[in-house]
Amino acid sequence: MLELRLVQGSLLKKVMESIKDLVNDANFDCSATGFSLQAMDSSHVALVSLLLRSEGFEHYRCDRNLSMGMNLGNMAKMLKCAGNDDIVTVKADDGGDCVTFMFESPNQDKIADFEMKLMDIDSEHLGIPEAEYEAIVRMPSAEFARICKDLSTIGDTVVISVTKEGVKFSTRGDIGTANIVLRQNTSVDKPEEATIIEMETPVSLTFALRYMNSFTKATPLASQVTVSLSSELPVVVEYKIAEMGYLRFYLAPKIEE
């Protein structure tokens, strides 16, 4: 038996909107630790890793580890029917073939339940080794989204370079080139507007903007995004989910042929 009650149901709505276009089908894993998902996009270029820790739920019951295969587009459709202030409860029986999403309005005057069929999904879990990153950039998530969107109107790839001068996002296309440099900025009044650059070694890597733009659909989840870079490693674009966990996107770099 599985029963997870999330007072801030909008978090789950936002998570689904962030990943549904990148991943079609995925297994949600439930354990005592929490509700998690790891899935690759269909091209096997990017990896999504979600964790919602059990402590973040108002009620968390998971009698035994359960893996539930879901079509994320269908799950997103159902969660879209929840109000932004609704409490969302996810329910499933051990060995059952469906999952129920229950939506309660804040004053309990409307209760809805949506049942969705589960599916068998063959997916292998990848081991993500702990890594020391050469550069970690923390910046406003909306700024990161803006940069990726702007650059994708000029080119298809972005070169992200971190030096002691700052972080540079560059692209080139048929019409010309673009460079956007951000410097560390900790002197802002609000911490969510800060840009913090931690650099061990200068690093420069090239990524497909199509994927970066897809990751930025998670912008509503967090005011800040963390971009971790190391040569020879996928970039990690991380959105923290308040008090609960994270949504991380890993993207393999492009290399010169």
């Binding site: 096997h44 270029v45 990848l126 993207l251 492009k254």
Partner: peptide
């Protein structure tokens, strides 16, 4: 010419 690498090149199945 640039080549897109696969994620499996970096992360092995558990």
């Amino acid at each position: 010419k640039q080549k897109q690498q696969a994620i499996s090149r970096f992360f092995a199945p558990k």
